[in-house]
């Protein structure tokens, strides 16, 4: 899996995405809209004088960057992978000198390049409109830029491994839909995990979905102690490595179980 192959796949997908820029622009409006609605609701609660774990600036930081982070860590290929395995479209890929996962990495990263170009100006506009004051601590931003690609990797590998279960299970897509729904909730897509009741915090901190979305945002909103930061990074790296091992294992045995139509 040379970097050059990955680069070619990314570049190819960038070109393909540009073709559908209008549709992608609409999707980016939607990506921004969801967090923005949640933000407005929490600001209403906050302005009523209710004491909340986050103040106004933290809410704005969280939800504004949530749109960016959720876009950058999004996955959608598990379902396609499951279909490719079930319908035998995987077969041609097994003859090529490049692992299937490289194509998916290329598609995932390639689309995100275009999405980022479309989404950034929108987020910037809203930030100006809300007079957002984003965190100024460069260390927080540095840690954020480290945990963000890790979050994308955890999310991507989790999706890829679940999709790969199609080697053995017929109907993986039910599992994928439940994962999208419950995973989004547990990742802090609607309500920041810091706002969940205290008695659930221990559990929330060790489940994988926190490390697909919430953790980079928690790093940035800056309420984590150095010990909690270290703990979080350890879990995030652990999930990354563990899921990579799962991927290798599942494909090692999965390809032996693979009996495609027409193969």
């Amino acid at each position: 899996m040379t970097p050059r192959l990955i680069w070619r796949c990314v570049a190819m997908n960038v070109m393909m995405t540009i073709e559908y820029r209008g549709e992608f622009a609409m999707r980016m409006v939607n990506t921004l809209l969801g967090p923005l609605i949640s933000l407005l609701v929490w600001l209403t609660v906050s302005e009523q004088g209710v004491r909340l774990p986050y103040d106004r600036d933290q809410f704005i930081t969280y939800y504004l960057l949530l749109s960016l982070v959720s876009m950058l860590t999004a996955t959608w290929l598990g379902a396609y992978l499951a279909a490719a395995i079930r319908q035998g479209d995987l077969s041609p890929w097994l003859l090529r000198p490049v692992p299937y996962i490289v194509n998916d990495i290329g598609n995932n990263a390639g689309e995100k390049v275009i999405k980022l170009v479309l989404l950034c100006p929108m987020v910037g506009l809203v930030a100006v409109f809300l007079r957002a004051s984003l965190p100024s601590d460069p260390r927080a931003w540095l840690l954020f830029t480290i945990s963000l690609p890790l979050a994308a990797a955890v999310a991507f590998l989790l999706d890829f491994v679940i999709g790969s279960l199609a080697f053995w299970i017929q109907d993986v897509w039910g599992l994928i839909r439940v994962k999208a729904l419950v995973g989004g909730f547990l990742a802090g897509q609607w309500v920041p995990l810091a706002l969940f009741p205290a008695r659930f915090q221990g559990l929330l901190q060790i489940q994988p979905f926190r490390y697909t979305l919430s953790f980079p945002l928690e790093v940035l909103t800056g309420h984590l102690t150095p010990a909690a930061l270290a703990y979080g990074f350890a879990w995030q790296v652990g999930y990354c490595v563990g899921l990579w091992a799962c991927y290798r294992l599942v494909w090692h045995y999965g390809l032996r179980a693979y009996a495609a139509t027409g193969a």
Binding site: G22, E23, M26, N30
Partner: peptide, 12 residues
């Protein structure tokens, strides 16, 4: 606008 998906926006 054949290539612009308006549905996502509506759901949002």
């Amino acid at each position: 606008l054949v290539k612009v998906g308006m549905d996502e926006l509506f759901y949002g």
